[in-house]
Amino acid sequence: MVEEVKTYHAEVTRDGKFWLIRVREINRSTQALRYKDVEAMASDLVEIMEGLRGDEYNLHLEVQLPSSVTDHQARAEVLREEAQRKQAEAAAESRAAVHELLALGLSQREAGELLGVSFQRVSQLAKSS
C-alpha cells in the first residue's frame, strides 16, 4: 500500500528586509533574508518540528505579494494580451497590403521594396491567409 505524502503550506510575506515564513500545518514560523533561502528555511522548519526527511513530505510555497504589485502584474498581463491582438491586427494589415500590391501586378520584390520588407517576407505574407 502506498502511503500518502503530507503537504505542508508555507505562507510567505515580506516584512521589512526579511521574508516571513509561516507553515500552517504546524503553526510555526521562521524567516529568511533572501527569497532564494525561503524554501530551504521552510523545509528545515518542517523537518525539525515534524522529524521528517525531505522526501517524506511536499512543501507548497504561497507567496503573498503586496496588492500594488499584483495590480501591476495584472495590468502588465492586460497590456501583453492587447499587444498580441494589435500584433495580429498589424500582420493582417500587412497581408492585405501585400495581396493588393500583388493583385495590381507587382512582383514580390517590387512589393517588398515599396513596403520596406524583404521579398522573402512578402512571399510569407502572400502565402498566409
Rank of each mutant, 00 (worst) to 15 (best):
M1P: 06
M1Y: 11
V2G: 09
V2K: 14
E3S: 15
V5L: 14
K6D: 10
Y8N: 10
V12L: 02
T13Q: 11
T13L: 06
W19N: 04
W19R: 09
L20Q: 13
I21C: 04
R22T: 14
R24G: 02
E25V: 04
I26Q: 00
N27P: 01
N27M: 08
T30L: 02
A32C: 05
L33T: 11
L33K: 13
R34T: 09
V38A: 02
S43M: 06
L45M: 13
E47Y: 07
I48L: 11
E50K: 15
G51D: 07
L52G: 08
L52T: 06
D55S: 05
E56A: 11
E56G: 01
E56H: 02
Y57C: 06
H60G: 02
V63Y: 01
V63K: 04
Q64W: 10
L65E: 15
D71M: 12
D71G: 09
H72R: 12
Q73F: 14
A74T: 05
R75L: 06
A76N: 08
E77F: 05
V78Y: 07
L79K: 12
L79Q: 10
E82I: 10
Q84V: 01
K86W: 03
A88N: 07
A91Q: 13
A92E: 13
E93P: 01
A97Q: 08
H99L: 00
E100I: 07
E100C: 03
L101C: 04
S107D: 03
E110S: 08
A111V: 10
A111N: 01
G112S: 02
E113K: 12
R121G: 01
V122Q: 02
A126S: 14
A126G: 05
K127W: 01
S129K: 13
